[in-house]
Design a protein around this nucleic acid. Structure first.
Length: 153
DNA sequence: GCCAACGTTGGC
DNA sequence: GCCAACGTTGGC
């Protein structure tokens, strides 16, 4: 079982939206490194749902992979913000499907994650808090997964 | 709104 | 293949 962290701007799509719907496609990823991680995901893998670019930044809960990578329909949808002209010839962008698992009672704020990392060596290599990292889909090691869950109230 | 950092584009 | 210019991400 592998673990992941996926970012979303809650104004666009929040964990509350996912909780309401139960499951949803994770689509619109337009970065090759992030895309490659999507392709590695297996059914039943768990992922943190991270709220970015908003008032309360941090990990809002957990979701679970229900479908492995398939061609992202938004890439060939001319009405979508995520439409990609080149994908009409070859669509190399992918989406996965995610199901809601847990919404944390209290969001684990980015500031607290950074504080935890200061005193917990398990979080040394957390990509999320690496300087300059903007990756929106990233792997989380078992140790990191445990350490972050330990920090949840 | 600002800005640091990264990614992409396109001229050469 | 280099690199400047531009666009985007995302924290603050």
């Amino acid at each position: 079982m592998a673990y992941w962290l996926l970012k979303s701007e809650p104004d666009e799509f929040s964990i509350y939206d996912l909780e309401k719907k139960g499951h949803a496609p994770w689509d619109g990823i337009r970065n090759h490194q992030a895309k490659n991680f999507l392709k590695e995901m297996k059914v039943d893998d768990l992922a943190f749902f991270y709220h970015s670019s908003c008032k309360n930044i941090g990990i809002a809960g957990i979701m679970q992979v229900t479908k492995t990578a398939y061609p992202d329909p938004l890439a060939v949808d001319k009405s979508s913000d995520y439409f990609d002209e080149k994908s009409l010839i070859e669509n190399k962008w992918v989406a996965v499907n995610m199901a809601h698992h847990t919404t944390f009672k209290t969001l684990l704020p980015l500031a607290k994650i950074k504080k935890l990392a200061d005193s917990d060596s398990r979080l040394n290599d957390l990509i999320l808090i690496k300087k300059g990292s903007r990756l929106s889909v990233m792997p989380i090691s078992t140790e990191q997964w445990q350490a972050l869950n330990d920090g949840v109230c």
